[in-house]
Design a binder for these strands. Structure first.
Lengths: 123, 123
DNA sequence: TCCATATATCGAGTAATCTCGAATTATGGA
DNA sequence: TCCATAATTCGAGATTACTCGATATATGGA
């Protein structure tokens, strides 16, 4: 990930409505939500939400798919991984001893209790 | 980490000079750099850089320590951990199967398999 | 105390962002 | 074709952010 894309992503998340939308869509993985539902969920006018969704999409954080008259939005979990990696990359580059504790702190929340969770849908 | 702090951090990083400064300071851990050196490094006027450093500090991403006439700035690695955790928290909450691959992808960069991977300080 | 160095704050001009009413485009059904 | 629904784009006013010259504050030394 180059810095220009990282800046787009950070700018997209630096706004309360958009951050809430992104977290909502992560919670709704993998079904996603249509644009109108998202606007109602956040109590924001429909056209204002459309602008926010366009910004999140342009930043690569979510993606859109038309389904009949609705447009379904979904979070792109890869983007989360890339952003987090971009943040820690510099210290990992030459100094794993600095970065390892960060990973150690992140891991516990995601350690699957059983091994039935090996494959994730991935492109 | 509550959302207001996350927004401050994202906004601070959503600007090219500040993102570069933050990454520079991560690379210079744990010694840090005085404000003037940072400004020269980025070819930015001293007072402009002071404003950027204040924004990064207010966001909790870096910290300042006076040392004689200089003020040394250092990256707060805890902030990286918190931000990354905030990003993945929602999927980790109920669905470790979604989040585990993210952690798996982050981990390899920090496993100190060969300790000969030291980076020469250059610039 | 006076001066030089190092950094922070103020003020103003410019640019970008946020918001939302109004108009536009796209889809599906009668 | 006409209509209703769903979403996007346009336009403008209000707010916020960026930049930098000028000025102010803080420290150390003579």
């Amino acid at each position: 990930m180059e810095s220009e894309r990282a800046i787009l992503a950070f700018a997209a998340l630096a706004q309360s409505t958009r951050l809430d939308v992104f977290r909502l869509l992560i919670a709704r993985e993998p079904e996603g939500l249509p644009a109108g539902d998202i606007a109602r969920h956040m109590s924001v006018p429909q056209n204002t939400m459309s602008t926010h969704l366009a910004i999140l999409t342009r930043a690569g954080l979510i993606e859109a798919e038309r389904q009949s008259r609705s447009i379904i939005y979904r979070a792109k979990l890869d983007a989360v991984r890339e952003l987090a990696f971009y943040l820690v990359k510099d210290c990992c580059g030459g100094r794993p001893e600095i970065c390892a504790p960060l990973i150690a702190d992140l891991s516990p929340c995601c350690t699957p209790k059983n091994e039935a969770t090996q494959e994730a849908v991935h492109e």
